[in-house]
Design a protein around this nucleic acid. Structure first.
Lengths: 220, 220
DNA sequence: GTTGTCAATATTGGCGCCAATTTATAAATA
DNA sequence: TATTTATAAATTGGCGCCAATATTGACAAC
């Protein structure tokens, strides 16, 4: 598939796969925040052994996507509003820092491809399932981050992006938010095309922090 | 070396402990970069079971401190110069970002304690073993980071600080470097005392990136 | 009706065992 | 002697089993 070109450490290939599956299911909301992840359920759902389940869960604990309580088990990490703000702040910091390199690095070819991916997300936003939206969104952002010259930074951002229930529940709760995300993507590509670093930073900041109109914003 | 009274609530307390032990031994240089970490050796050295060893190693893989190759085992991750520069860049970004909050937050009490810890490090630098130096250094920086208002940022920085062979081999190869680190610590406290955010950022940046005089700097 | 106690059930998590695989050693061949 | 091949040793890593612990549900006491 369109998976990362290189995976030199296809070591525990199945685990990596399983990890992605679970992360996606958490993002979709199949496993909600705070929900217990019973090992037996996971074995059956994904058709893997207990050992594989445990290892992946431990991995996700290290990534702060789930938490582990001794003799109780694993459960989906539930970020409070404070933590969500903190992570957003960090992401803003890192992703705007990446902006400079991205603008410098981007070739015409890159911009073309990003345009296509932004278009793909638009299609998914209108006609696709939540799962397709998530995939399209990830494809766009991954491609974008490939342009970052600092590989470690890229990895860190990717890791941070999937922390917390990053997906629909938190992000695209309304059609309006989905529309804003779509627009943001095009604005990002535009800023790169114009080689406008400051503009790019502004769009990225807005993309991370202003999720768009939301009825119960007063809550937070 | 027997377990003290079993404390049920401190989750995988033993593992956390073991994790810190191994990290420290990597930092000291007992396990050098690229060295294989044989599971049997680790069981014996730390007097723990195989399961515990494996779990901690997997955790360290997630933290990018060791790498795992299937059917070969785990080995200490060896950062190339490029990656080391990248991580330094990220750390500079994050730690200077934390500076603002630190200056705002710091009370007289905090500054007093930091002074003591900086003094402790100085003592360790002159009269202590490498291990004591590492501990003193960590104590100072941990206390400093406690002042950061963004807890998630604090955690992330701490994690990043121990990535890669962060310790003597890489950091304080010479007495001159050790002296510079000592001085930096006092400068950091001074900047906080003066509420000089920009000054603090400058010192931190220097502390991370300019390791001080080094004979073979031409190499990099 | 509510609360407390205790047994039954469900779940987690540690450990030993052994197959799969790699690395080291020795023999054999050119 | 150098190189390849075969054999032995060492190491990793998956799996089932079962004890420790938590949760549920029933039942009794107030």
């Amino acid at each position: 598939m369109q998976d990362t070109a290189k995976s030199p450490e296809d070591a525990e290939g199945e685990n990596i796969n399983l990890s992605e599956l679970i992360v996606r299911d958490i993002n979709i909301g199949i496993f909600g925040p705070g929900e217990w992840l019973k090992q037996v359920d996971l074995e059956q759902r994904y058709g893997v052994t207990r050992i594989a389940v445990r290892r992946v869960l431990d991995e996700l604990v290290a990534k702060r996507l789930v938490e582990h309580i001794h003799n109780r088990g694993y459960r989906v990490y539930a970020l409070g509003p404070k933590q969500r703000r903190e992570v957003s702040e960090i992401r803003t910091l890192l992703e705007t820092a990446a902006a400079g390199g991205i603008v410098e690095q981007a070739t015409k070819q890159d911009i073309e491809e990003l345009t296509v991916l932004a278009e793909n997300f638009k299609q998914a936003a209108y006609y696709g399932t939540i799962l397709e939206q998530i995939d399209a969104n990830r494809n766009f952002h991954n491609r974008l981050l490939e342009l970052c010259t600092n590989e470690s930074l890229t990895e860190l951002i990717m890791e941070l992006r999937q922390r917390g229930p990053a997906a629909p529940v938190t992000r695209w709760r309304t059609v309006a938010q989905l529309a804003k995300a779509t627009e943001d993507h095009f604005r990002i590509v535009d800023a790169i095309r114009r080689r406008d670093v400051e503009g790019l930073k502004a769009v990225i900041t807005s993309h991370i922090n202003d999720k768009g109109p939301n009825l119960d914003l007063s809550k937070e």
